[in-house]
Each structure stands twice: as structure tokens, then as C-alpha cells.
Amino acid sequence: MNLFRLCGDLSHVISIVLLLLKIRATRSCVGISLKTQALYLLVFVTRYLDLFVTFISLYNSLMKVLFIATSSYVLYLMLTKYRQTYDKDHDTFRIQFLVGFAIVLALLTPHRYTMLEVLWTFSLWLESVAILPQLFMLQTTGECENLTSHYIFALGLYRALYAVNWVYRYLFEPDYWQPVTWVAGILQTALYGDFFYYYVMSKRRGKKLKLPT
């Protein structure tokens, strides 16, 4: 475990805290894509099936449980308590394409053809594009609350920090070789490119995030 990886994990946890804060503080899930949240739950469930077969560390296991639990909870809140505030009309991205993309690549790129490996590969490719419905929603509405923009930023930062961790591990761990993880992770980070730019610009002006329409 190096510092980049640890900061990446922390950034991921912080993003979820920010999302829950946003929902509680505004008592609404306006501006949050239910589709992206559902995809994340699918990502965590398919990736962390190995909870039952492999033990890496207590830290890893607890984080896996935390990610599954919190993403289930967010989805639960959006579907029950705050359902009235969900902005369905702006959450129109067609996720069939994203799931199809992940299925095709999961069948083409696994390390070995076992159920767990294929599902794990599926989760990596799906995670790489799961933010698209959220970014699309932001694009169509043009702006979002500060907490929502911080949430998306922390979520993007997480994979960017992982990418630095991969470079570090590649340099210092002779056997470390995870090409699928790297390519999917870099794709994931690249999708945030525009968002990062407008986020940083809006923070420099001390204003809330607005996208050009």
C-alpha cells in the first residue's frame, strides 16, 4: 500500500460521504443520476464477489463491504424517501450501451476464463464508463449544487490517484502487471477531463459549477 493508493481510496470514501451529505443537507437527490448509482452498485457487487473466496486484508474486506453497503443505501434513499425529488426527465442516458460495452470487453479481455475473472473484468470496464449518465445529466442541466460538484470531483480524483499508484507500483514492484485495470482506469479518468477543467475554473472564481450550454 503506497500513499497514492491510500489517498485514492480515501478520495473514494470522501466522495460517498459528500453524496450522502448532499442528499441529507438538501433533503433531495436532484441532480444525481439514479442510473450512475445503479451502475456503481452493479460494479461493486460483481467486483467484490471475491469477498467470499479470497482474503487480502481486513482493510480491503472492510472497504469492499463499505462500498457495497453505501451504494445500496444511496440507491435505497433515491428509490424510497427522496423518490419525488429524483429528476428523471434529465436522467436519459441509455445505459444499455454501457452495459453492452462492458459485457463485450469482459468476454474479450479477462486474465482467465473463470466466472469470477470475467465478472471482475466486467466490473472494471463498467466502472470506467459508469459516470457517463451523471456527466450527461450535468451537461443537460448546465449546473449543479456545490456538494454535487465536489462529489463528482472526488470520485474522478480517486481513479486518477490510482493511476499514479499504478505507475509507482510498476516502477517498484517487478511482477506488477495489470493491463486491463490500467487501460480501464485511464479511460475512466479521461472521461472526467472536461469536468475537471470546469470544476477548477469555477473554484478559482469562487462560484458554483456551471457548464457552457
Partner: peptide, 10 residues
């Protein structure tokens, strides 16, 4: 073999 099957990241 390589460490590829070792998934110690999240």
C-alpha cells in the same frame, strides 16, 4: 506466473 490474478486493489 505474473501477479495478475492477485487483486489487492479496490
Amino acid at each position: 506466473s505474473s501477479k495478475e490474478s492477485e487483486k489487492d486493489e479496490l
